[in-house]
Nucleic acid binder design. Structure first.
Lengths: 208, 208
DNA sequence: TCATATTTTTTAACAATGTTAAATTCGAGT
DNA sequence: ACTCGAATTTAACATTGTTAAAAAATATGA
């Protein structure tokens, strides 16, 4: 067998094992939540001894980061699917923002993970600049539809970017409140507030 | 000495010790951050052995909660001071919202603590319903000025309450982003976005 | 003042966490 | 069969929050 093929096979096997561990992580995470997703629990679920994971990953955070990476990819898919159905920039903006919001409402574990990692994570082995940058970029990519829609509505590129950040912040804040059961009033939901926010922004862009 | 006096003295001494521990907690927290504020570090700073703290507090979270309680009280003071200088409902709304935002910008450790505890905190000994409720109420009280101002601007009580939640969410989201260095674009700051949000809300209320 | 309760603090341990180094097993290539 | 390297385990470490039991300190009553 040629050297290149050997290498590819070995690489494939290694990737498969990584994937197995990540699947185990997702499963534990889904069932036990962030706090139950200890390295040891993940290892047990994957049929490994705790230390074995360190051959495939740098740290527990590295595993988390990888799970978050595909979570964000899933988010992006969902946003793009929602946007694809729209016929106007305004609809597009609305759809993208609400798809983002709904994704995290329907997948609270992804929200936990996102908040956890984006807050800085664990101590000595904390994410690391590269990973942080990468995840940030992935998230920005998932939110690109919002920026695009804003530009199509006539906003300058910089203003569109700011609107995106602002929208993200508003959604994040509402999700945090709702997720920790700090919104419950007069039948209004966090989603209602989010919708209202988006409509206001659209109306405001049109008014100019 | 009468029984009542004896009891009061003893109570005062006990309170003083509690205060000492809380001061130590604040100090460690200020200097080492949330992650450095382990029970042992707090105990050491207070000149105690770790286990001794359990005589005065239920858990590490109970200490955190107490620190957060006075933090929120300080926030409320600051908001009310800012509000006191205003002469109109619109100014009042603006001042309250921005004072809230600025407080957490200027005291990032308080923000850490707030986010930490309001996210659910640690595992088995997690805050507990009563404490959570109490802190929630304290926060609501600190934000009361916003609700009041909104009502003075003509909003119905329920709408004023919703505006308050919405404002809190927006601020929380922006603070989270800024605090984790996820806002840096075109010279616009998180504070600019917050100001813009508040102005929009005021304008919108006037327009009706 | 002495003995006795009571309150406060320490000592010593537990279980669980993430992580690491050294030893071991496993698997393919020669 | 042997060897070399990759993959995994074993066993430990340090750190965390927490608890039970012993000890010290303090107050109380005679």
């Amino acid at each position: 067998m040629a050297g290149a093929q050997r290498f590819e096979r070995k690489q494939a096997v290694s990737d498969h094992k990584r994937a197995l561990i990540l699947d185990a992580a997702r499963k534990v995470f889904e069932q036990e939540g962030l706090d139950g997703a200890s390295l040891r629990a993940i290892a047990a679920e994957a049929g490994y001894t705790p230390a074995a994971l360190y051959f495939h990953f740098d740290s527990k955070e590295a595993i988390y980061a990888e799970v978050l990476r595909v979570s964000i990819a899933r988010l992006q898919e969902e946003v793009e699917r929602a946007v694809a159905k729209t016929r106007s920039p305004a609809e597009k903006l609305r759809a993208a923002a609400m798809a983002f919001f709904d994704f995290y409402t329907e997948n609270p574990r992804d929200l936990d993970l996102g908040f956890y990692l984006f807050r800085g994570g664990m101590k000595p082995h904390g994410l690391g600049k590269e990973r942080d940058k990468q995840l940030n970029a992935a998230l920005a990519s998932a939110l690109q539809s919002i920026s695009d829609a804003a530009e199509e509505l006539g906003a300058k590129r910089e203003d569109a970017r700011m609107l995106t950040v602002d929208t993200f912040a508003h959604a994040a804040g509402l999700l945090l409140l709702a997720h920790t059961h700090r919104i419950r009033m007069f039948g209004a939901s966090a989603r209602d507030l989010m919708e209202q926010y988006v409509e206001d922004r659209i109306a405001r862009m049109r008014g100019r």
